[in-house]
Write a protein that binds this DNA or RNA. Structure first.
Length: 785
DNA sequence: GCAATCCACGTACCG
DNA sequence: ACCGGTACGTGGATTGCG
């Protein structure tokens, strides 16, 4: 008996069987039952593009013959587009996905076939695209129920028709979330799965149940077994962790392997496995590593669980254990320490859950918007998210997906940045073009498929300034269609949530969705200029920035015609003296002349510029202070230096009192000299951007990294190294010591005064004629403001 | 021979 | 594995003086 099954799609996977592939759609239905729908009707395929001069019928026969040995199901001639150009293609449908790429390779060599496309799209991705099925949203399918057998679900269905999205906007179901935090005991440095057991594994679920597993003796076998049992008993939909893709799951997998424990936590009873983009996949559930989302929040400089929690205003644990993560394994050796480690793990798992409350909505909506399953939307780089989104759109337009090809890097000219007028300015309005690059791409129909190749005749084109690339005015290009849709969807959502209660579930969901849409919209220009992009066409990116520069130049010209003084500008913004009438006139004129929306973003009561571009600080009417580009905004300065600079900026912007600022700096200097500053505030964090042996010059953070490695710590590319500068002779890199190995009394306080505190303070103070000796001596100084 | 100067390297920011 | 534009500290090579 077939019935209509509605389900919210949580995970998708497929298995090849001799009879063909089986696609598994894991979800939650309206009654809150965990269900899986198996679709056996969906077959893999690719396209063989017919060369312009070849006879399609002839090519079809040739392709058919060549595909036979690969389990051909059918071959058909279809009309598609490639970069906007109509093409004939043979759609080759095979029984099994294993043979797809091999078959395409053979077919690609045939006469009359210019290339094969889309053989590199995974079947599960293909399924989502072709059926328009949305991960993290409601879909439905005609299906008949069967017995669930071994599967860990409430119901199993066999699809009798094609799955499709539910058009109606429905709230998501309540997800069962489980947070994890693991402590392994390391003898030195980082724990090694081959050697060091897991000693504590804390879990917390969305019902508030906290369950901690501990290892008593040397073996963690029982811990692992009871954990697996518990996961199956609670049956989470989403498992969240912090660093779980790279550390937690691989660690558990290795420990289970060594202990002969089956880590069968998936809904098929399968063990976790590493999959696309390096995420760990747990069949039937969504494994979400919150670190992946924190990584993409630039305001969180240090990507630790604590600083992420702090950023989201998550209250610190009640019991301040004063334990650093790196000390935990050592504590395990003492009787008293073990209790602390357990409480530590439990505090941390609460933080993971709290972080999930702040991030999961966005993750879910990002998955929904780009159409990638929830478990790997976080691990995929921005470029791939955009691309996944574009692939779904391309299918709707009958556009073939271009192959990924390796290309040489070819730089092009970017945005225009104005020199600031140094000093303090009063009442400055920041005016910016909203979504400038997307808007320009829409306005001038900039797109891979509208570009007129050099030398080709065409009328009715837009010609980019400076670079001369031409784009057909009609029909609307791929990017114009996609971007207008994105902008429209976002503004609709924003309009809709205005009427909603901010604390309501729907508000949170829709707000997260509009942020996800914004993320993708803003990334489209960058995607267009990425040589790794399937739809990369350099002139597209180059023309976009060229029109951007022309736009801002025209804006500047308009301002000067209206007698409006511009004090700064960057890419899509101008900072002007806030004269309300003039500004209004200006905004109107710019919109008329250029045809793009420009609006006041913020108004600074006071704003301070140094000589440098991209660095300033301003105070708003409500007293909030923005600090842009300066040391305060950077993650690679010691906290103490940033604090000095923040204080100086605040004093100057709020009170205009340079003298007070100077004496504040003097206080800080005295404090640093006295050695009263905690080590934590002296740590400098820098990222390892390449393998240690690839560095051409010796650098402090690289030397510190080497010392950590020697001491048994694990460090990989992309990790941040925290070090302090200690007393001693020689180069700076010889004096850099990992902060976990340093003690407060060996700190080179002189370095922190001369190279951290003073430069950070002087950056701002030299605007007022303050000299370095004004900070180090106690004599009087003069200044002007 | 050595200090001053310059430039490349490296990192992180802005929009 | 998203773009180019920009600032700035540090190391190391080069330059300039003698």
């Amino acid at each position: 008996m077939a019935e209509r099954v509605r389900f919210w799609l949580l995970d998708i996977n497929y298995e090849d069987t001799p009879q063909g592939p089986e696609v598994y759609l894991w979800g939650i239905d309206k009654q809150g039952r965990r269900v899986v729908v198996v679709d056996r009707e969906f077959l893999p395929y690719f396209y063989a593009v017919v060369s312009g001069e070849a006879d399609p019928g002839e090519v079809l026969r040739r392709v058919e013959a060549a595909s036979k040995p690969y389990g051909l199901v059918k071959c058909e001639l279809v009309d598609r587009r490639l970069f906007g150009k109509p093409v004939k293609a043979v759609r080759v449908v095979l029984r099994n996905s294993e043979n797809l790429e091999k078959c395409a390779e053979d077919v690609g060599k045939l006469e009359g076939v210019s290339e094969c496309l889309e053989d590199d799209i995974r079947l599960s991705v293909r399924y989502l695209i072709d059926n328009g099925v949305n991960p993290c949203d409601w879909n439905e399918v005609e299906a008949s129920e069967r017995s669930v057998g071994e599967l860990r679900v409430d119901a199993l269905y066999t699809a009798k028709g094609k799955a499709q999205p539910v058009e109606e906007e429905l709230p998501p179901p309540d997800l069962r979330v489980m947070a994890l935090y693991m402590v392994a005991r390391a003898s030195a440095g980082s724990p090694k799965a081959e050697r060091d057991p897991v000693v504590v594994l804390s879990t917390l679920n969305s019902e508030g149940e906290l369950k901690t597993f501990t290892a008593d003796g040397l073996s963690d076998k029982e811990l692992l077994e009871s954990f697996v049992e518990y996961v199956l008993r609670y049956d989470p939909d989403v498992i969240v962790g912090y660093g779980s893709n790279k550390v937690l799951w691989p660690y558990l997998m290795k420990r289970c392997e060594l202990n002969g424990v089956k880590l069968s936590v998936g809904r098929t009873g399968a063990e976790p496995h590493t999959s696309l983009y390096g995420h760990v996949s747990i069949t039937g559930r969504a494994n979400v590593d919150l670190f992946d989302f924190v990584r993409d929040i630039p305001d969180i400089k240090l990507k630790t669980l604590e600083s992420a929690a702090e950023f989201f205003g998550i209250p610190r644990p009640e019991e301040e254990l004063g334990v650093e993560e790196y000390e935990v394994p050592r504590l395990w050796d003492s009787e008293e320490g073990r209790g602390r480690v357990v409480r530590f793990a439990e505090e941390r798992v609460r933080m993971v859950m709290a972080l999930s409350d702040s991030l999961l909505d966005f993750a879910v909506q990002l998955s929904r918007v780009v159409g990638m399953p929830l478990d790997y939307v976080g691990t995929a780089a921005v470029g791939f998210k955009v691309e996944n989104f574009l692939m779904r759109q391309a299918y709707r337009f009958g556009e073939l997906v271009p192959k990924r090809v390796e290309r040489p890097y070819m730089p092009y000219v970017g945005a225009l940045v104005l020199k600031p007028k140094p000093g303090v300015h009063e009442d400055i309005a920041v005016l910016d073009f909203s979504s400038m690059y997307p808007s320009l791409m829409i306005k001038y129909n900039i797109s891979p498929d509208t570009l007129v190749p050099e030398g080709e005749e065409a009328e009715e084109v837009y010609t980019a300034p400076e670079v001369g690339h031409r784009f057909r005015k009609e029909p609307p290009g791929f990017y114009r269609r996609v971007l207008s849709e994105l902008l429209k969807v976002r503004s609709e959502i924003r309009e809709r949530i205005k009427k909603l209660d901010k604390s309501s579930r729907l508000y949170r969901v829709l707000d997260a969705r509009q942020r996800a849409v914004k993320t993708i919209t803003n990334a489209c220009y960058g995607y267009a200029g990425w040589t790794g992009a399937r739809w990369y066409i350099r002139p597209v990116a180059e023309a976009t920035t060229a029109w951007g520069r022309a736009t801002i130049r025209e804006t500047i010209k308009t301002a000067s015609e209206l007698g409006l003084e511009i004090v700064y500008g960057d890419t899509d913004s101008v900072f002007v003296k806030y004269d309300p009438e003039k500004v209004e006139e200006f905004l109107k004129t710019v919109e008329e002349r250029i045809g793009l929306r420009i609006k006041p973003d913020k108004i600074y009561k006071r704003v301070l510029f140094t000589e440098a571009k991209k660095r300033y600080a301003g105070i708003l009417e409500d007293g909030r202070i923005d600090i842009v580009g300066l040391e305060v905004a950077r993650g690679d300065w010691a906290e103490i230096a940033k604090r000095v600079q923040r204080d100086v900026i605040e004093i100057i912007l709020r009170e205009g009192d340079v003298r007070k600022a100077v004496s504040r700096v003097r206080e800080y200097i005295a404090k640093v000299k006295s050695g009263k500053v905690p080590l934590k505030d002296l740590v400098i964090w820098k990222t390892l951007t390449k393998e240690l042996d690839e560095y051409k010059v010796r650098a402090p953070h690289v030397e510190a990294a080497k010392r950590l490695l020697e001491a048994g710590w694990e460090l990989t590319l992309g990790d941040k190294v925290g070090y302090v500068i200690v007393k001693g002779p020689g180069r700076l890199y010889e004096k850099a010591k990992p902060y976990v190995m340093a003690s407060p009394d060996e700190v080179d306080t002189d370095y922190y005064v001369k190279k951290q505190v003073i430069p950070a303070a002087m950056r701002v103070l030299k605007v007022f004629g303050v000299r370095e000796r004004d900070l180090t001596s106690t004599t009087l100084f003069s200044y002007s403001m």
